[in-house]
Design a protein around this nucleic acid. Structure first.
Length: 546
RNA sequence: GGCCUCGUAGUUCAAUGGAUAGAACGAAAGUUUCCUAAACUUUAAAUACAGGUUCGAUUCCUGUCGAGGCCA
């Protein structure tokens, strides 16, 4: 039997079995099925009558999912890279909820160590001893300023040493500031009151500042973890691991795990002096999270420069026999680079998160004013819409890219409001809402009953649109299993394009055939609803007008 | 040096191993007495290179070149 004959046979079989099929044809070894026109009316009504379309309910298949992001260091304010992290974590939380899971969002603050010591030292050395209150500077920015000040102090000290004839390396070794940092860190670990008090104060500034940024982005965490709480944990786990034979001890007393059989290395988990290392803390935190949330799945949103670290961590947890250790996932995303390359704080090329947010809102406002939009909306509402559009543009721009891939962001050009952008999709949504408002004014009600709509035969653009809307639940599912908000972004852009196309070619409210008008109103309502739901999953607001 | 990503129009991004590689920005031309022109319609423009597997490869494998990352 050749492909043509096989196709005929299968096609004829399906034709007799499924009443929804109108006809079929065979092209280049592909069997294409043509559905009956009435099928589309039926499908549209079904979607319209489904309250929870695209959203799964919590049931026996649902999981407790814990997702950790963006886990900043407390010595520097958030930048563009954190924004990608935040947008991904936030969107993925919503996507997993839509898949029926219970999602807990947590944030780990890396609040100790040499970085914050540097900011503290610069503060102690400064003459003015500025605080957020005295300076009016946002807390996280101020701590960051001190961090930068430290680097300048350090650079100056190095140059002085080099002027005395020391080599680069020797100067680094002898840098008195490095010793002071080490000293501060030791005093902090010993619980020195003065140091701990300053540490608390400066971290406090940071939290106050960064939480303003979180609020701007609608982030709400279920729990905050602090490195200072977990850094000393993990010894007990190491001990148990030794007893189980998962770890082994070297003659100097240090504890290791041998992962060479799975292509990784030998990894240190406890130093010979009994202090923990980074990964020991992560092991401890994993157990802490299990205790706190009894998760079935645990997701870490962390950049891809830590791929190796997470491979090792997950392998260790697996061997320790932690519950749900087969459901650990590192959502590894690529770096955000500038056209000039990587962001470097030393070269002052870091794009600050707050500044960027402020800029995009400003651009949204200017664009709206230029085009004379929103003239009939009152002032406070306008500001809210500018914010929704600006931040929507930023979120969409970053989320539409496959998380795994590194992306290039040009602060001056990337935020566009035309084309494949957040505002375009928001605009199409606003149009649907405008149509529906006008329909109400004209006294037209939308009828979702199938039999009413059956009197109309959808054209090709309409059936295409319905077909695409019907895909939505599948896409939500796919985005969840692939951990990829980009799939939702691509989906909703296509949806907006299809509607825009339909809207351009056909009248809705001015259509004289009442059956067609009713049908199109229902289609408009369902398109609007689906765009709104998809944007919600991306963390993007859908304004009623713009 | 070892390991891990990645390489698609001028630029930024798409494409479960499937049909003529799809958009957007930018470039060129056009659409407004018509439900929002942040829109719509045309045109030009791309799979780094060389092999292999397959009926079929942007996708999988090998090598070369190039970019980035992790480890020492």
């Amino acid at each position: 039997m050749n492909p043509q004959q096989l196709g005929e046979a299968v096609g004829n079989g399906l034709l007799s079995l499924d009443s929804r099929i109108e006809n079929f044809n065979i092209v280049k070894g592909f069997l294409n099925l043509e559905l009956k026109k009435s099928y589309w009316n039926h499908l549209l009504s079904e979607i319209a009558n489904n309250e929870s379309f695209g959203v799964s309910k919590y049931d026996e298949k649902s999981e407790n999912v814990i997702i950790e992001y963006p886990s900043p260091n407390t010595n520097k304010p958030l930048h563009l890279g954190h924004l990608r992290n935040i947008f991904l974590g936030f969107s993925l939380s919503r996507i997993l909820e839509a898949n029926g899971h219970k999602v807990y969002q947590v944030c780990l603050y890396n609040d100790r160590g040499t970085n914050i010591s540097k900011s503290m030292l610069a503060y102690l050395r400064s003459e003015k001893k500025l605080t957020p209150e005295s300076s009016g500077i946002k807390g996280d920015k101020l701590v960051g300023d001190y961090y930068v000040a430290y680097n300048e102090l350090s650079k100056k000290a190095l140059e002085e040493l080099k002027a005395q004839g020391l080599s680069e390396e020797e100067a680094k070794k002898q840098n008195p500031l490095e010793k002071e940092i080490a000293d501060l860190t030791v005093r902090w670990e010993a619980g020195d009151e003065e140091v701990v008090a300053l540490w608390k104060t400066m971290n406090g500034w940071f939290y106050e500042g960064v939480e303003q940024t979180y609020k701007m982005l609608d982030l709400k965490f279920d729990k905050f973890y602090y490195e200072s709480d977990v850094y000393n944990l993990g010894r007990q786990t190491v001990k148990e691991g030794l007893e189980k034979g998962v770890f082994f001890q070297k003659p100097d007393g240090s504890v290791w795990i041998d992962l060479t059989d799975v292509g990784l290395d030998e990894k240190l988990v406890l130093r010979s002096n009994g202090t923990t290392v980074y990964i020991t803390q992560d092991i401890a935190l994993a157990y802490q999270k299990q205790k706190d949330f009894e998760f079935d799945r645990s997701i870490y949103v962390v950049g891809n420069e830590q791929d190796y670290h997470f491979k090792v961590l997950f392998e260790i947890l697996r061997r320790l026999g932690m519950k749900a250790s087969d459901k650990l996932y590192h959502l590894s995303y690529g770096m955000v680079e500038l056209p000039t390359g990587k962001m470097k704080s030393r070269e002052g090329t870091v794009v600050d998160a707050d500044d960027l947010i402020e800029d995009v809102i400003k651009i949204a406002k200017e664009t709206a004013n230029e085009q004379g939009k929103l003239s009939e909306v009152d002032e406070s509402k306008k500001e809210e819409i500018y914010k929704q559009i600006g931040i929507g543009a930023l979120r969409y721009f970053i989320l539409k890219v496959d998380p795994k891939k590194k992306m290039i962001f040009n602060p001056y050009e990337s935020i566009d409001f035309n084309g494949n952008t957040g505002p375009f999709i928001q605009y199409i949504h606003a149009r649907t809402q405008s149509l529906l408002r006008n329909a109400v004014q004209m006294g037209l009600a939308i009828d979702v009953h199938e039999e009413e709509n059956n009197n109309y035969t959808p054209n090709q653009k309409e059936s295409q649109l319905i077909r695409w809307i019907a895909q939505f639940p599948l896409v939500v599912n796919e985005a969840g299993t692939m951990y990829s908000p980009a799939l939702i972004a691509n989906y909703v852009y296509e949806l907006a394009c299809l509607f825009s196309n339909f809207y351009h070619d056909y009248k809705v409210l001015k259509e004289e055939d009442t059956h067609a008008r009713q049908f199109r109103l229902l289609l408009t309502a369902q398109t609007g609803r689906t765009i709104q739901k998809a944007l919600y999953l991306l963390g993007i607001e859908a304004p009623e007008r713009m």
